[in-house]
Simulated assay, not measured.
Amino acid sequence: MADETVRKIIHVDMDAFFASVEQRDDPALRGKPVAVGYPAARGVVAAASYEARRFGVRSALPSVTALRRCPDLIFVSPRFDVYRAVSQQIHAIFADYTDLIQPLSLDEAYLDVTANKQGIATAWATAKAIRARILAETGLTASAGISYNKFLAKLASDHRKPNGQFAVTPDMGAAWVETLPVARFHGVGPVTAQKMKRLGIETGADLRAKTMAFLTEHFGNSAEWYHAIARGIDERPVNPNRERKSSGSETTFNRDLIEPAEIEAGVLRMADDVWSWCEKRQAFGRTVTVKVKFHDFQIITRSRTLSGLVDSEGALRDVSLGLIRSVYPVPKGIRLVGVTVSKFEARPIHEEAELPLAPA
């Protein structure tokens, strides 16, 4: 990757981030199976330490299942304010090495180091320097993938986890992709992976062997993406100004709900949570979606797109209530509700939110 015309992309991914922060801050947790989340009947695992992962404990796993797999699992309540603060430290380190940073979440980001801000000899050495800084300043380990595009860099960062790094060079990229299971590819979720398996596609080589016509027939608009990544091709730039397309929040109830008042209370809490984010970021959308998951895990959604922006908490609450009421009477118990705002647009300068009235 010495060729100056080749982009140099690093994907940095923190190792078991939430759980590692908890183990860092509480020495009694080190070396033990830790799950960030709540052990309640309806709880889910937000993150798991590597000690817990050996038992098959993963994020999004129901807490009861996690405890069944690992009876000694230690649950720790999440501290998102701490995770955000540590994430800010990490991103400040990134900024010393490049101006092109595209965060994906609190614990991972793409970095384009082609411009070589620090004058370090190679992208490999840059990744090592970044990981060393993260360890020294936060006490946490990170893994990194280095390649000539984002798709390969993200794949590579998972190849030497935890606390390692791996590079995919231009002369090996296409051949390396052929050896991997398609289930590992970004953009191929569990459902798509199963569909591909039914079609005889299990590896990158299998995917590359399919014609564009075949991929279009079976995967529609995603065909071009699958055709490209099977050849190690990804032209997407690292975009530090990537706009967020939606903001949502959801909650799982402690028990299945039937009563409208209880269901609506949950919807309103989620609407208020989303509004807090929208107000803080000054991001306002026109579409509101309410998600409902029933006790048998059937999921339905109801959406409404307004002619103007949802630019007040009251408006978001009203639309959300209208959407949840459209599913009454509920045919079965509800275990989860969520609210999402999307189709963000800039608020016209002349539109100003009304100040709340002072309490009488």
Rank of each mutant, 00 (worst) to 15 (best):
R79F: 04
A40V: 09
A265G: 00
R302I: 00
T216V: 10
M212D: 10
E345Q: 14
E250L: 10
G56L: 01
F185N: 06
V267W: 13
A19I: 13
R160A: 15
R231P: 10
T114V: 05
H295W: 02
I146K: 05
A213F: 04
R42Y: 07
T98E: 04
Q165N: 13
Q23M: 15
I146Y: 02
E354W: 11
L104G: 13
A228Q: 06
Q298P: 00
R255H: 15
T301E: 13
Q23G: 06
T340H: 09
M270S: 07
R198W: 03
F55R: 00
V290I: 08
I299A: 05
S312L: 04
M196K: 06
A156I: 00
R317T: 11
F55P: 04
E352R: 15
A167G: 06
S105H: 03
T192E: 10
A358Y: 07
A125D: 15
F94P: 04
I93T: 07
R198N: 13
S147L: 06
Q165I: 02
Q89W: 03
C278M: 15
P71A: 06
A129F: 11
A174H: 05
P39W: 05
R53D: 00
D99F: 11
T252E: 09
E354R: 13
I263D: 05
P27N: 12
R255D: 13
E178F: 03
R208N: 03
H91V: 11
R160D: 15
S276H: 11
F344G: 08
A213R: 12
S312H: 02
K197A: 08
D158L: 04
G187Q: 04
T251V: 15
R42K: 04
I10L: 14
M172Q: 12
Y110K: 03
P103C: 11
W225E: 03
A153H: 03
K154F: 01
Y328S: 00
S59R: 08
M172D: 02
K150H: 00
P27G: 14
R325Q: 14
A156C: 12
L215W: 00
A28C: 03
R255C: 01
G139S: 08
R24Q: 14
R244M: 11
V82P: 08
A16G: 06
V339C: 09
V44Q: 09
R69Q: 08
V330C: 10
L323N: 07
A156H: 04
I299H: 03
A19L: 13
V339N: 13
F94G: 01
T301A: 08
H186C: 03
I90M: 07
T122V: 07
S49F: 02
T5D: 10
P170A: 14
A358S: 01
G56I: 03
M270Y: 00
A47R: 05
I334H: 09
E352Y: 00
V36A: 06
W124L: 10
R286N: 09
G204D: 01
V290E: 12
I93C: 11
H295K: 03
V76K: 06
Y50T: 05
N239G: 05
